[in-house]
Amino acid sequence: MMAWFRAGTSLLMLVLLTAGCAGGKSYRLGREAEQRGDAHQAYDFYCKAAKESPGDGSIAASMERIAPTAATYWHSQARIAGSEGRYSDAWRMAIRCLEIRPNHVEAIQFVDQLEREHPTVVASARQAWLRSGSKSLTVAKSDGVQVASARPGKARPKARRKPSPNPSPQSRSTSPAQNRPKAAKRTKPTPGPRITANRIGDPEKPMPLPPQPKPSPPPENAKPTKAAVPPNDSPTAQKEGEYLVVRTLSKRDKRFKRRMKAVDGIFIKLKDTEEEPDVDLDLYQGDRRVQKIRNLKVGRSKIFRGRSGSWYRLTVLKIHHKSHTVRLGIKAA
């Protein structure tokens, strides 16, 4: 009798455990991504978990917690794409931000601005977006969920593609017959738009990818302190002409300050550099820290807002980890 009771209890516990873990794997992956600081990836995993078990309160709480950061990520990526002239990508990224936070006022204004200033580019992007989204809206089938990469560590490299000479969806044929096979081969790295359909959080909508990193500057020279500041005729120096301000910050090299005024009332403080190499920065408005930037690699950018409300783009030009020195370029976004 006792044996039957024990077996029954074990079975019941197993059933409860299994039921409680609906969406468990996605939720766990989301937690891992959140701990890594990849809010946008974490949000996508939470969305997948929410699709599997919509009534789970912990998933809802996680999504609510992470949504502002994930939306800010896509908004900043949209601003960067816009400043690089990739208006189609910018529109999609801003839309992705709105899908996460439909009341994101700045993203709405940015979309309005893009639609006003670049109507033809945005119209084609919108058409592509509508095509990818019409499935579940008109037919309302429950669609399958695919994850770009089950392992969060591998998600990024998989998603990245080689820079395309024509990244705009305009390069796509509008003919349905030509579109069909292209869409079927979506997962293959064909040269074309860098934006792929998102099948993680919101299966019917396209998910834009972050912009490609710029080609890294030439490797460091042997002398650490001199290498941190390239000579004026070097390719990096020539590139620096496009920036409003170029600043060199260092923790160990006495020639450079650790904290410097950047632009529009914003100060940059070098927190640390890593061997990878990447850099951690803090942005201050007076004594108040307004933004944390972590693990920013060479060629990657982040946007920030000045005191006047204007947007600026900060790009890492060079990192010399030995001397904990970093060179940053800032321009209007």
């Binding site: 899908e99 639609e115 509508l130 095509r131 019409s134 008109t138």
Partner: peptide, 21 residues
Amino acid sequence: PHPLDRSIMEQVAIVQTGAEL
């Protein structure tokens, strides 16, 4: 209209043109 708005008519037009779903 909100940027995320997709009207039924837009959806129907996409389906009618035989676009890839």
